[in-house]
């Protein structure tokens, strides 16, 4: 019974991952990782025989052992995601700072340009807006 359950569970996860990937909500890097997890869940159903003596040794049912291992793997994934998120935060910070510095530089250059040619219209003014002094 538990073999079938694990098989269905793995299949559902794989379908979810494929669905997310089709809508480009997951990058290929994560798709591969999760497909591997889904396949492992499905396949683990076939290995309950092997797991039984180990589970018995530590006083657990095979299903409980699988759940424990799965829980630990999920924790590892969560830690990995935290690391990724921290890195992304740092990158975002860097990009925002560069943006702010570049924007200030543009503003300064625009001011210098308009100071140098006081009669010329500002670069943003539309050419066809007016025909010049009548």
């Amino acid at each position: 019974m538990s073999e079938v359950l694990l098989g269905i569970l793995g299949l559902l996860l794989a379908l979810l991952i494929i669905f997310l990937a089709r809508y480009q909500l997951l990058t290929l890097r994560y798709v591969l990782g999760w497909i591997f997890v889904a396949a492992s869940i499905s396949a683990s159903g076939a290995f309950t025989g092997i797991a039984e003596p180990i589970a018995e040794e530590i006083g657990l049912r095979p299903e409980e052992l699988f759940l424990g291992v799965a829980f630990f793997l999920l924790l590892l994934i969560a830690v990995q995601l935290s690391i990724t998120a921290s890195g992304l935060t740092e990158m975002l910070r860097d990009v925002c700072e560069s943006y702010a510095l570049a924007e200030e530089r543009i503003r300064r250059l625009e001011e210098a340009a308009s100071d140098a040619t006081p009669d010329a219209p500002p670069p943003s003014a539309g050419v066809e807006e007016e025909d010049g002094p009548a």
Partner: peptide
């Protein structure tokens, strides 16, 4: 001189 960060960092 103002440096504008687009989001609160």
């Amino acid at each position: 001189t103002v440096l504008r960060l687009p989001i609160n960092l």
